[in-house]
């Protein structure tokens, strides 16, 4: 395990203890900058990520490393490198099954009911910042599996966007290794993938046909304004790289893109606190999401 390796190489136990108060400061810094939060019990995860960076920089103690993150000339670069470390390994399919459960059990039945009442049959999903495509592929499998059950009589489309051309190319090719598929059941692999060389699988035509990949810069206001009528936005571990002002703007665009009653899903430990107060935080079993309230709920003055 790389974290363990880092611990050993660094040597003294004091260096590797997540209890070092400097880690609390790093935790708060990361939260302020990115919205990603580590609870006390999860600090060891953060310290593991920091230790890999400390090793690279030969920083001896967490508080030296805190210096690299705050007061050195290249602290912004270091912050970004740490954020990269933090999100490594986050991207595999079905990483957060609770999100799909919330969709299946609560959110989609609600939305289908509201839409059904006015004769609308199409559900629209948007994976904003889809990176190499694990999330939209998992979502597509989940929705295809619900096609004759929850989604009987409805259709759906998935828009998946990213700024990075290389990521998009990988996403479009749909070729994944064991890591990306670690939580994908044999039945789903069988149904939606085909072999693609050593230890790899490629999304089949049926799965690919469900997703429209496009290049989009979330900071491009003009293009963002064009996204309308979306029911569900996924934007996991993307906003963490934005400064507060851009983050607020992007989130406000999501808000405008969503239909009333629609939801925004962020990464597991991400929060919108202090970024936007139009959305309402909703708790589901094992996960949380942000609701765009309906006009009636807003008029009710509830917050």
């Amino acid at each position: 395990m790389p974290v363990e390796a880092a611990k050993t190489k660094l040597g003294t136990p004091a260096d590797s203890s997540p209890n070092d108060p400097a880690y609390l400061k790093i935790r708060d810094l990361i939260y302020r900058i990115s919205g990603i939060y580590y609870s006390e019990e999860k600090l060891y995860l953060l310290s593991g990520r920091c230790q890999r960076r400390m090793l690279a920089l030969s920083a001896a103690t967490p508080s030296d490393y805190l210096g690299h993150l705050t007061s050195r000339g290249n602290c912004e670069v270091e912050l970004r490198l740490l954020l990269n470390e933090i999100t490594i390994g986050e991207t595999y399919m079905f990483r957060h099954p609770a999100q799909h459960e919330a969709l299946r059990n609560v959110i989609l039945p609600q939305i289908l009911q509201v839409k059904g009442a006015v004769g609308l049959k199409r559900l629209r999903f948007w994976c904003a910042g889809c990176s190499t495509g694990e999330e939209p592929h998992a979502l597509a499998m989940f929705l295809l599996e619900e096609k004759d059950k929850l989604l009987a009589g409805s259709t759906f489309d998935i828009l998946a966007t990213d700024l990075n051309d290389n990521s998009l190319e990988t996403a479009r090719a749909g070729i994944y290794d064991e890591y990306a598929l670690r939580s994908t059941s044999p039945a789903l692999r069988q149904k939606y993938f085909k072999p693609a060389g050593a230890d790899k699988l490629q999304a089949n035509e049926l799965l690919k046909a469900q997703i429209r990949f496009e290049r989009l810069n979330l900071s491009d206001d003009t293009k963002m304004l064009c996204q309308k009528g979306i029911d569900i936005v996924f934007c996991c571990n993307v906003l963490i790289y934005f400064d507060l002002a851009s983050k607020s703007r992007v989130v406000q665009h999501f808000f405008s893109s969503l239909m009333p009653g629609g939801y925004l899903f962020l990464g597991h430990a991400e929060s919108l606190f202090g970024v936007n107060d139009s959305f309402r935080l909703v708790h589901f079993p094992g996960t949380t999401a942000y609701l765009k309230p309906t006009a009636a709920a807003v008029a009710g003055g509830k917050k």
């Binding site: 609560v106 959110i107 309402r280 935080l281 708790h283 589901f284 079993p285 094992g286 917050k303």
Partner: peptide, 19 residues
């Protein structure tokens, strides 16, 4: 109950604490 510490079964709920 939203964090799997309920009565030993899964409840189907979405809760907006703010309201």
């Amino acid at each position: 109950r939203m964090r799997y510490l309920g009565y030993g079964y899964d409840e189907i709920l979405g809760i907006e604490l703010g309201s």
